[in-house]
Write a protein that binds this DNA or RNA. Sequence first.
DNA 1: AAGATGTTCAACCGCCTAGTA
DNA 2: TTACTAGGCGGTTGAACATCT
Length: 331
Amino acid sequence: MEVKGRVSNSTGTIVQSEDEMDLRRGPWTVDEDLALINYIANHGEGRWNSLARSAGLKRTGKSCRLRWLNYLRPDVRRGNITLEEQLLILELHGRWGNRWSKIAQYLPGRTDNEIKNYWRTRVQKHAKQLKCDVNSKQFKDAMRYLWMPRLVERIQAAAATAAATAGSPTASASATTTITNNNNTTYNYNLNSSFEVHSGNMMLSPAIMNNNFGGSQSYTPENSSTGASSDSFGTQVSPVSELTQDYYNNVTVVNSNSNNSNNPNLDYYPQVQDQLSFLDCITSPSGLFSQQLDFQSMEPNTPWIQSNGETYNGFWNVDNILLFQQLTDNM
DNA sequence: AAGATGTTCAACCGCCTAGTA
DNA sequence: TTACTAGGCGGTTGAACATCT
């Protein structure tokens, strides 16, 4: 695919420079990817326009930058958005809105583009199913009081299962997790599949109060398998991704000291971050499920995301939609 | 089996800001 | 101060793929 570059001069006339006539657009080829990877390996990134020329790429600097940051960069995490990441995206979007790059700073390895895509395809889809605007208070309340607690519950259930499978004594069934957000709302979660919401000084809608979702209330969801949803995160495997990951195995500048065998990209990148699980972070250092997770004070790029590929089973099953409707009927 | 419809995500576009000459 | 350039960001598009009818 080759498209002639066209720009307007000061009089509005379409002109074409010699370089612009050769500019390529559209999907990147294997050779282009390799050229970019090799060039950055040897010369570093930055100064994208000159980089594009020096690397012999008939692409704009912007295009090179985007390709590198969103796809070729070795520490890009690919695959399913984990439950932990979903929870964090919901929380951070509630605070910052569509500040994708800012949100991405808190999800190491995820790009702003990926988070934006997640929001538009998954979250907005749920809002559409519920026939409400994704920015409406109804939907935000549903996220805060139904979706996010459910995510935490499932994270804990998965952790408990994993711990039990591993024979770990930490799989205590009555442990409780407390999460406090920037609205001073405290969520208490425990492994018995119930949760409480303490509203603190947060403003709650009368409908929610009337429906026993304000103050300090308990709600026991259905069996935590919850799975009935059409959502299927990450089932699509990009052939391009597989290809370019294979290339990393053959790039001559790989860091052979790395022992990471899961992500071939990391072999290429000298700085391999040790990753902690979500529960490691909310429980450590002093006690199981008792620490408060303070999103406000978290530093960007804190490497706390679990590296496994949790499959999302969805939340908006029939029970929860009915519950949501009960909540919103009185609004 | 085939066409229609829905979903995903890489890539592009246009705007904005910071840096610099 | 102004003009220009590079880089960054959020919004949007469209091809590829999946699912439905």
